[in-house]
Design a protein around this nucleic acid. Sequence first.
DNA 1: CATAAGTACTAACACGCGTTAACAATTCAA
DNA 2: TTGAATTGTTAACGCGTGTTAGTACTTATG
Lengths: 345, 345
Amino acid sequence: MSKRVTSQDVANLAGVSRTTVSFVLNDVKRFSIRPETAAKVRQAAQQLGYVPNASARALASNSAMAIGLIMTRNPQYIASDSFLPLIMGGMMDVVKQNQLGLLVEWVEPGQQLRAYMALTRARHIDGMILMTPRSDDTGLKALEDSDIPAVLMGYIPGLKLHSVDVDNIQAAKVAVDHLIELGHQKIACITNAATPYSSSSQRFDGYKQALAGAGLVFDPNLVRQADFDSHSGYKQMQSLLETNPDFTAVFVASDAVAIGAMLAIREAGLRIPEDISIVGFDDIPAASYVTPKLSTVHMPAKEIAQHSCELLLQLMRGEKPETKDISLPTHLKIRQSTAYLERRP
Amino acid sequence: MSKRVTSQDVANLAGVSRTTVSFVLNDVKRFSIRPETAAKVRQAAQQLGYVPNASARALASNSAMAIGLIMTRNPQYIASDSFLPLIMGGMMDVVKQNQLGLLVEWVEPGQQLRAYMALTRARHIDGMILMTPRSDDTGLKALEDSDIPAVLMGYIPGLKLHSVDVDNIQAAKVAVDHLIELGHQKIACITNAATPYSSSSQRFDGYKQALAGAGLVFDPNLVRQADFDSHSGYKQMQSLLETNPDFTAVFVASDAVAIGAMLAIREAGLRIPEDISIVGFDDIPAASYVTPKLSTVHMPAKEIAQHSCELLLQLMRGEKPETKDISLPTHLKIRQSTAYLERRP
DNA sequence: CATAAGTACTAACACGCGTTAACAATTCAA
DNA sequence: TTGAATTGTTAACGCGTGTTAGTACTTATG
């Protein structure tokens, strides 16, 4: 039905050349256009409902006006990521404000190197933001050497790539310190994901540092590794309870996992926080609504998303950002899942 | 550093013309290419790390190999949509399998008409999937008349657009029937969103039909309207409890909202399900982990996403799908938040 | 042997836009 | 009056690819 309207059509209707149309609509200041001519062009464009073709524009101007959000997890884990909506919501704001498109891409683990280069060359995007990067991702080194603007949502030491993250080590330490201050000595830990995910190993480090700082012994038997979702938290807590009946608190490095762990604790007939104190990480919306309300480390998800976008925009414009790595503040939200250690009968 | 590699470079290295390169790499069968020539071309492309430019390809072939996921909610609500990860996870599968890109777009309410046409014309995408459409969205009528492949994730009566959804009315009716079978007579309702969102009014209809079917009177005072997130559910339940202390069950048309409502109930000193039975809708992951576990209507989110994609793909290929509207089955998950009515003292 | 019918490839145009270099028209300075 | 400067506009090229129409060469056909 509706024929494609090109800038030529606008030019014809306005009685000018296609070049003039381009100058007017793109606001090219280097060439001065008579106001009445500009008005005529705008009027014609309006009347025809002209919208420039994104592909043609990208091809000619060598910029796609779009950025990529790259995820390397399995779709199954994407599906259970309570964090994704917060990130997307935060990105939408900036993206919309800057007239950008947002291309979501999932890269198969193992295919990273090939994929990053392909995305680059393909040029449907001008830059990319990498979610939950893994330290064993060989593609990141290749990205470093390329000239593609890229930002990591998550800090990996030793990389030249820019990043936005919180200080996971410190934040985890604060969370565990809280448990220690409450008198707990036997504190278990369930990580949020496999070690290669940077946030996982860093939060685990914070846990160990807190123990060390308080002179508590680190017991590997009190540690389990979960896998993003609540179900894994449930299973790992069951495992902990079976083998170690005597810990009185647990640091769980992700709220989604923690919520699963809480269920396992209740099913074991134990009370939170009377028998076991639990502190999470992320502060996803659900954390404020479970019973008891989950004490957790607040992650400024929206701010992370926004800063990532803006940092990427700077890189795309060729600017030199002040800092290579942006570290945003976290704070511990003490709610109802942590309490003073009571001597159990 | 890395210069852009074009098909011309590949042609030069392989000692053939650019056209031949195109034929080989795109597998054009209409023209026969000697196997050894094809091998030479592939070898050269491999060696140079050639990746076709997406924009140029889109421009020339008039197809962008990408689809759009359009959301019309505010970013603030996107951020609290526990459903989004499930949808995205489901779409990723199909999208990846078909070598498509996924462009996520947020359209400001009120700007729909202009935006849909712009997205069309812009041609960075070949088709679009509209999440949570609103029945008062005037842009949808315009979409109908255009020839842009589009699929609604959510059914709106009277539209020619294809859709994928569950039977919200029936599903809600089953949920409320469950409460009725448990002996409840005073059953409140909190909707999931404003009426124009199709799912909201449909689930509300199901609620009313169930009441009517059981000969129960419909009391408008027992109805509240929430706004997607848990906090709104919390507030609306508080409002319900203040003014109507005598209902014994509530149907909440979204789990996120229901989880907020549960908190309000507990804070009022009431027990679930002994004092108030509650049944939700959606079956988000958290529903299985709150206390008590939430009885709810299971939404096949992943399947909805996948069917939407595949339906859209059919439309993009110019095929005529068998049915205009796909309706997927739901089922009631009875867990722990619903129980037989006990006479309260 | 001449014609027809493949086979293997290429030159050339189109897609819609941004942009440079040039050109016509007007104004200004000498 | 002439040349230079300024203002307003456009012809023409390039971005990297898909695709049609055509060419040269080989093989079958009468």
